[in-house]
């Protein structure tokens, strides 16, 4: 207990820097790999790195990034949301089927889709917090329920469509900027602000790291969890709506390709899968990284199988990187 508590400011700064880097090893490494990939691509196909191309990849990343907002919050709370696959599909079907491709019905469709997502998320949250069902079982079960419900609702073939006015949000441009990317940036800022400078954000990090401590400090853990899963359902619904707008219609299984990447983006972003540690900034990098990776793998004609293997490998690498830079603290 007698060691000195005063140290040179230089040493302090160094220590702080080291801690900062260690907590962000995975996102920084993926940032480096992103740059490397871009350089290699530009060498192999000169002109690859252009404003249009970058904007295009950012646009593709936005779907994943928005779907991963909820996943980030849920993982920070110490849980996981595996129901976003069919939440995305289901809400996209609701959106397309309610709005029927008619501009006048667009808002109604949007409201119906978002409400559906919110309700799904709230039910997840109630199951996890009030009934203490483990998040993995609750959301995996919910995924199946939505799958069945969607099939019943669409009778196996989704119909309807998205009017051009609606498609603007996913495909439109304002000057050189994609509307979708601008929307993503706005949402990102909101999420980061909520996490870092509000009471709710603090409580979420507390519940995620140690629910018992947070309960004993007077936090209503169940409310925090219900809110978090609700937001996850909402963000999945938004991703579904935007993806349907991008494609012009909804189709079954459109959400399946989001679950693993969304979780991967969060893990690559350096968040602890045990909750309480991380933020949305890393997830943004993770989403961009994974989208770029997918794009490149399909450009060089990797089969779906090889892509699956590489995807899994990347997640394990990120997990290991987090493990060895942040310690195995559970």
């Amino acid at each position: 207990m007698s060691e000195s508590t005063t140290s040179a400011p230089g040493e302090d700064r160094q220590r702080a820097l080291r801690a900062f880097l260690a907590a962000r090893a995975a996102p920084l490494a993926s940032l480096a790999v992103i740059l490397l990939m871009l350089v290699v691509c530009n060498v192999m196909a000169p002109g690859f790195v252009s404003v249009t191309n970058t904007m295009h990849i950012a646009q593709l990343s936005a779907f994943l990034g928005i779907a991963a907002i909820g996943q980030t919050l849920v993982i920070l709370s110490g849980g996981i949301d595996l129901s976003i696959a069919w939440t995305i599909t289901g809400t996209a079907c609701v959106y397309a089927q309610v709005s029927q491709g008619r501009p006048a019905m667009l808002l109604l469709g949007l409201a119906a889709a978002l409400a559906t997502g919110l309700v799904i998320g709230l039910v997840n949250g109630i199951g996890v917090s009030k009934f203490r069902i483990s998040p993995i079982v609750m959301t995996l079960g919910m995924n199946n329920v939505i799958q069945g419900a969607t099939l019943l609702y669409t009778d196996g073939t989704p119909s309807g469509g998205v009017a051009d006015e609606g498609r603007f949000f996913a495909t439109g441009f304002i000057g050189p900027f994609s509307v979708l990317v601008l929307l993503w940036i706005a949402l990102s800022i909101a999420v980061i602000v909520i996490l870092r400078v509000t009471r709710g954000g603090r409580q979420l990090l507390g519940v995620g790291e140690n629910p018992l401590v947070s309960y004993l400090s007077g936090v209503r853990n169940d409310r925090v969890l219900i809110a978090v899963y609700g937001l996850s359902g909402l963000s999945a619904a938004l991703a579904g709506v935007l993806y349907a707008s991008f494609s012009g219609a909804s189709f079954l299984g459109m959400g399946d390709t989001f679950v693993l990447p969304a979780i991967a983006a969060v893990v690559i972003g350096g968040a602890s899968i045990y909750g309480g540690r991380g933020g949305y900034g890393g997830t943004i990098i993770g989403a961009f990284f994974l989208t770029l990776l997918t794009t490149l793998l399909s450009i060089v004609n990797f089969s779906a199988g090889a892509r699956g293997v590489i995807y899994g490998g990347v997640i394990i690498a990120a997990l290991l990187l987090n493990r060895f830079t942040q310690g195995a603290a559970r």
Partner: peptide, 11 residues
């Protein structure tokens, strides 16, 4: 992650 890997390997 390994789910994705083995899915890929099977394909």
């Amino acid at each position: 992650a390994t789910m994705s890997v083995w899915d890929g390997v099977a394909l």
